[in-house]
């Protein structure tokens, strides 16, 4: 997908109308994630039911790719166990770093899969990874 279609079809929706943006009053875990060089800044909160992520929210500011990527990530990880979420974060990292390209293997990333082409835009890699990197730090 070229860049313009990526924005048009996927990123804009999550950036302008994020489903998971806001703040919880009683999170079990929270962590700030920052890309200091470009100013992308998020605050990620997780709520657990036993080992399962029962809810997640974020707030923050930054470029559309960084914000949309977090929103998509939260779509995916609600309902997953810690290990499953970590595994998915590792898969997303591998995709963005261009290490995994097999479509079938990447299927579980759902909509986040469409950020695959960011691996061809070195300057934007860290934007796409911000949420996933923060998640990995929290759970890892």
């Amino acid at each position: 997908m070229d860049l313009k279609n990526l924005y048009r079809e996927i990123v804009n929706d999550h950036n302008l109308n994020p489903q998971h943006k806001g703040e919880m009053t009683d999170p079990d875990m929270e962590l700030r994630g920052v890309n200091p060089s470009c100013g992308d800044d998020i605050f990620l909160q997780l709520k657990f039911d036993g080992d399962k992520i029962s809810d997640a929210m974020f707030k923050g500011s930054g470029c559309a790719i960084s914000q949309a990527s977090v929103d998509m990530m939260i779509d995916n990880i609600i309902g997953l166990s810690k290990d499953e979420a970590l595994k998915q974060s590792a898969l997303f990292h591998s995709m963005i770093n261009g290490e995994v390209t097999d479509e079938e293997e990447l299927e579980e990333l759902d909509e986040a899969y469409y950020l695959k082409d960011v691996c061809h835009m070195p300057a934007r890699v860290k934007c796409a990874l911000l949420g996933w990197r923060t998640l990995k730090e929290m759970l890892g």
Binding site: L3, C38, C63, A64, R124
Partner: peptide, 22 residues
């Protein structure tokens, strides 16, 4: 409404090189 990094990426698609950031 448009982050400068997104703006620079979109303009790059048309071969336009501008700086974005701090």
């Amino acid at each position: 409404g448009v982050h400068p990094h997104d703006l620079a990426s979109v303009l790059n698609d048309d071969g336009i090189c501008i700086r974005a950031g701090h």
